[in-house]
Design a protein around this nucleic acid. Structure first.
Lengths: 226, 226
DNA sequence: AACATCAAAACTGTATGCAATTTTTCTTTA
DNA sequence: TAAAGAAAAATTGCATACAGTTTTGATGTT
């Protein structure tokens, strides 16, 4: 995997080094990655089109930020898209994929028992990604991953906040319930559980914001002047 | 609306001047729009990220093309997304939007009666766009329009092919049925009718391909060496 | 006529320079 | 001390140049 420049810059956002609202200075990034501004600019434009960052004419690009309403809309949309993936995966996944899903859940159980947050975040990605694949629809997979990507700066913060969302068991057990429905071929059930899971995530995120409003390590919210 | 360079290049694709598989030569585009290659490249990268064109390292970017399977997957995904928009719009549109929907349908009736194909294509965009707005979810709207954009080179060809899809009345009456359900606040019905409408469009498109396989004015299909 | 080979032309990827705009810093004034 | 304004610094947008790769086209061979 020859990490592209685009991926390297995206990673700065996804691993939280750059938070929503932070500026992306072309020259700094160019120096950092040992290239000129030209390829940096091209990568930034691509990330702008994919919705992870915001391009503002004549001004620095910034990591995209959502206000409360936008965040809730994003989760509503993601909930429906993920629910669709889950219901299709329940019907379309082959034996090998079902086997891998089981293995994934076992690993997830282990990780959440150990309270390993970075690993849990990774498992979350893998779980949803596996359902995206299982739905057997490349356009849907693209759409699902784009949507997921856009809110990652917010949802990842939830996982990584030590002490918050103290119960790593809860998201895991929700995943497990979804996996059971998928493995049982119960598309309707999987979709319903997925909607609830995503809705639950939004609620946790909103509480997180309410609790950490004045802290400096929380992702910024649009219009949040500090 | 100061048509951006990105929009100008997208228009070449959307109005059919560039068809799926066609190359986007940077220098030609630069000359055509009176700029240097730099801003052309940036626009091309953005269109690549949004999925309208395909970026190939060290080779010219090309207008994205779908093979049969991809096309069918894209329509399945679009059907579900549009159905979701329709069902939300049925519940969420306000009086002004409902009024405008009625006006839109009247104009559409008129246009399809006159067999005005370019206008009918325009109406199609407006109809779906209005439902995207009515769903009151900006992320969903973004997702819906991106998905729609990607297959436009194919669906637009259907509308524009003089003689084909001879009955402009059919898509219109499907739109009308959806609009009725939306106006009646019947989300379930609107969603079901929308799924059928999109599925119908795919069938027409597939017939179109079967019929025009050896013609030169048809959009190219991936692997379609000519 | 079809195919392979190779040189020329065309094209992409990246660096660099400069003008125009934005941002920051410094100075002045109330 | 705070606000306003001006000068300086930093930053973006675009053009251009050049190296390296791909594509095209010519030539020769089977």
């Amino acid at each position: 995997m020859p990490h592209t420049l685009r991926q390297k810059i995206a990673d700065l956002v996804l691993n939280g080094e750059l938070k929503p609202g932070d500026r992306l200075d072309e020259l700094s990034l160019a120096d950092r990655f040992g290239v000129s501004r030209t390829p940096i600019r091209e990568a930034i434009r691509q990330l702008g089109a994919s919705g992870l960052i915001e391009i503002r004419p004549r001004r620095s690009a910034v990591v995209r930020s959502f206000d409360r309403a936008e965040l809730s809309e994003a989760f509503e949309a993601m909930g429906e898209i993920e629910a669709l993936c889950a219901s299709l995966a329940a019907v379309r996944m082959n034996e090998a994929e079902r086997l891998k899903l089981r293995a994934l859940m076992a690993a997830s159980q282990d990780v959440s028992a150990r309270n390993d947050r970075p690993a849990a975040l990774e498992m979350d990605f893998e779980f949803h990604g596996h359902l995206h694949d299982g739905a057997r629809n490349r356009m849907l997979k693209t759409v699902a991953e784009e949507t997921r990507l856009r809110i990652t700066p917010y949802s990842a913060a939830l996982y990584m906040m030590e002490g918050y969302n103290a119960d790593l068991q809860r998201p895991h057990s929700q995943h497990a319930a979804i996996a059971d429905a998928v493995l049982a071929g119960n598309g309707e059930g999987a979709a319903r559980l997925m909607r609830e899971h995503i809705a639950q995530s939004l609620i946790s995120l909103q509480q997180f914001f309410a609790d950490t409003q004045s802290r400096s390590d929380a992702p910024k919210v649009k219009g949040d002047a500090r």
